[in-house]
Design a protein around this nucleic acid. Structure first.
Length: 161
DNA sequence: GCCAACGTTGGC
DNA sequence: GCCAACGTTGGC
């Protein structure tokens, strides 16, 4: 029996990597690299799996918001930017046999018809349990089935997409 | 750009 | 293993 599809919220500063950047990549796919937090790393490595849904969140802007959805296209593998001294995500403790940090590939699915701002999420009672409103610093967060459906509905996307 | 919240580091 | 110092995140 296939594993049940799960849902996540991935944060990115759009000045660094935006949903437009993802859509513009070959195959609309890009490694989600640079995660340097152990809890987020553990989720990426151990919980996030191929086929899972991703809410693409733009952080550190005047109106932080979920802008669309992506999907995970494979399991986690070592984040090579941690081994590259020229990368701003370089971590000198890492070695090929000791990767420490992991990443997954994500593929653009679609942008929402309208952005769902943090303010709107905060004002929506059925989203009051979202991790985003509690552990605001975690860059990879689990999203429940009902939260996923609510956000997609608010974003003008039909269920099942 | 400020700064609160929070994660990490390292001396002890 | 405690905890102060420090660095980073991210809303505002």
């Amino acid at each position: 029996m296939p594993r049940k599809r799960r849902y996540w919220l991935f944060k990115s500063e759009p000045s660094c990597f935006s949903i437009d950047d993802l859509e513009g990549r070959p195959d609309r796919t890009e490694p989600w690299d640079g995660v340097r937090n152990y809890q987020a790393r553990n989720l990426l490595r151990d919980e996030v799996a191929e086929g899972d849904g991703v809410l693409f969140y733009h952080s550190n802007i005047p109106r932080p918001c979920v802008v669309g959805i992506a999907e995970v296209v494979g399991g986690a593998y070592p984040d090579r930017t941690a081994l590259d001294p020229r990368s701003k995500h370089f971590d000198p403790r890492c070695a090929p046999d000791n990767p420490i940090w992991y990443m997954v590939d994500v593929r653009f699915v679609r942008r929402f018809l309208r952005e769902i701002t943090l303010e709107e999420i905060r004002a929506t009672p059925s989203l009051a349990g979202m991790e985003l409103l509690r552990r605001s610093r975690l860059s990879i967060q689990p999203v429940s089935d009902s939260e996923w459906e609510t956000i997609l509905h608010l974003g003008g996307v039909d269920k099942g997409e």
